[in-house]
């Protein structure tokens, strides 16, 4: 029993699901703690796995400080920002389930941005740049684009996620980008109308039956993005 406890203090057992040529391969990994009380983040575990056991392990990361939004993975089936998510005994780390896996924990991301290509800020707003934006505007631009919001999104699930170059149906992130234009004091009325039309085209009506989405860093997506867009879209429909 005593031996076991010392073991516990030195190591942390996790499963890293690697992926190659369309197949998942779980790898058991014993993370060696640098001191007894260390609570490693998922990124620490992946870095050590690359250093010791799986030298060509593929995963994305950037700033290590929850700012760049690129290191999102699934931990026990839920999207987590790897650089700031503490790992516990027997956790399973794998690629996000909501986007197509390329290799190991790397997912393809650019089908999301491509659905807005040419559809935002299409003309210059023409308004004076020297106006203050509201707090709501700034809340939306705190989004770090981690894509945790794709999880359980009924709108995003309508896409053929693995095969499309540019997703037809939207997601909370794309809606946030469009609502940002609606909230922007510099936007012209036509830009705002445009943004709302785009939101409807991305399948906004699906959101009517949805209890709401969850943001990786705590933006009120339902209250500040989806509901206002639905309200504006309805208003325009009634006119």
């Amino acid at each position: 029993m005593t031996v076991r406890r010392t073991e516990d203090k030195k190591y942390l057992n996790v499963t890293i699901v690697t992926h190659s040529e369309g197949k998942d391969m779980p790898v058991d990994f014993k993370y060696q703690k640098r001191h007894e009380r260390e609570k490693p983040m998922a990124l620490d575990v992946l870095l050590q796995a690359q250093e010791t056991k799986i030298p060509d392990l593929a995963f994305r990361y950037g700033c290590r400080a929850r700012n760049c939004g690129v290191c999102t993975i699934d931990i026990n089936g839920l999207p987590r920002i790897a650089c700031r998510s503490v790992v516990r005994e027997n956790d399973e780390l794998r690629a996000m389930s909501t986007l197509p896996v390329i290799t190991d924990l790397v997912v393809r991301r650019d089908q999301i941005s491509r659905q807005l290509r040419g559809k935002i800020y299409r003309s210059s707003g023409g308004n004076d740049l020297n106006v203050d934006a509201s707090d709501d505007y700034h809340e939306l631009t705190s989004c770090i684009e981690c894509y945790a919001c794709l999880h359980n999104c009924p709108l995003h699930e309508k896409n053929r996620v693995d095969s499309e170059e540019r997703y037809e149906y939207g997601n909370p992130f794309s809606l946030l980008k469009l609502q940002t234009i609606v909230m922007d004091p510099v936007s012209s009325n036509s830009q705002k109308n445009d943004a709302i039309t785009q939101a409807v085209n991305l399948g906004l009506d699906t959101c009517l039956d949805c209890p709401g989405c969850k943001c990786g860093i705590g933006i009120d997506l339902k209250g500040k993005v989806v509901d206002p867009l639905i309200k504006e879209a309805k208003k325009r429909e009634n006119n």
Binding site: L116, G118, K119, T141, I144
Partner: peptide, 13 residues
């Protein structure tokens, strides 16, 4: 991050 959005917009638009 505010600059990140503006730069993203400039490419995607």
């Amino acid at each position: 991050v505010a600059f990140g959005h503006a730069n993203w917009n400039s490419i995607v638009k």
